[in-house]
Amino acid sequence: MKRTIIAFACALLAGPALAQSLGEKTGVNSALGVAPTTADFVKEVAVSDMFEIESSKLAEQKGTAQEKPFARQMVTDHTKTSGELKDLVGNGKVQATVPTTLDSSHQSKLDKLKNANGKDFSSDYASYQVSAHEDAVSLFERYAKGGDSAELKDWAGKTLPALRHHLDMAKELGKAPSVGQTK
């Protein structure tokens, strides 16, 4: 009985420590409010920026009158943050690798957008934007509070207000009337 209690106590105490080693994709870190590792943070930011840029380029072509200015701002702002991240990693202050391709999850969302039109495109684009910016705000908040690179923590904190503004704007995308949209 003592062994069972000891094993259970060890498992409870190890839980938070083990959660820190899990990748961001599991969602465990986010649920527990655990800061991502520098490598996970850099990877998630780079993939998120690539998705924002590519999906918003599609919205510039296929989107509604409401979506196009939002999409232009996403392309501009996320191109800027991508450059800043690459500069932080490239100058040697941050030890991480910046991915150059989307992961399978983001690629499948992008493929779905490429094949969608009209209301289907608008619905998916708005939904993806809200979800992506909710994830980004969480990621940046957690890293700004508990990340292990001072330069990235500072950058994450400075970038947060723009991401929160993007989230607010994304939540407004689906609220406008869909006049003139075709399927």
Rank of each mutant, 00 (worst) to 15 (best):
V89E: 11
L102T: 13
T101G: 07
T159E: 02
Q129A: 04
Q107C: 09
I53Y: 01
G147T: 09
T97V: 15
S56P: 05
V98G: 08
T79D: 11
D111M: 03
E134N: 09
D111Y: 04
E54H: 00
S123L: 04
K86N: 12
N91D: 15
K112I: 00
D87L: 12
E60I: 13
A132P: 09
V130F: 07
D120P: 02
E54L: 01
T100C: 05
T101H: 14
Q95D: 15
T81E: 03
V94F: 13
T100S: 15
K109A: 09
D77G: 13
L110I: 05
G157L: 01
Q107S: 13
H106I: 10
Q61Y: 01
E134I: 04
S104Q: 15
V75N: 02
E54G: 00
Q66L: 09
K119L: 07
K80F: 11
S105Y: 11
D154P: 00
F70E: 03
A132R: 08
E141R: 15
G90V: 10
A116P: 03
T76M: 13
Y128P: 01
T64L: 10
D120G: 04
P69Y: 12
E151I: 01
K86D: 09
Y125I: 09
R72L: 06
L160I: 10
A144D: 05
L163G: 04
S138C: 03
S108F: 03
N91V: 11
H106V: 11
T100Y: 06
T159F: 00
S127W: 00
Q73I: 10
H133P: 10
A132E: 12
V94C: 06
V130W: 08
T100M: 09
A59C: 02
D120T: 14
L110D: 06
V130G: 10
A162N: 09
L113P: 06
L88S: 08
K86A: 13
V130R: 08
G92H: 11
Q95M: 12
D135T: 12
D120M: 04
E134F: 04
A126W: 08
Q61E: 15
D135E: 14
G146F: 05
G92L: 09
Q95S: 15
S82P: 02
R72K: 15
P161C: 00
S131D: 13
A150R: 03
K62L: 07
D154I: 00
G63R: 08
S138N: 14
L163F: 11
T79Y: 06
S104A: 15
S122N: 14
P99I: 12
W155Y: 14
A96I: 10
T97R: 14
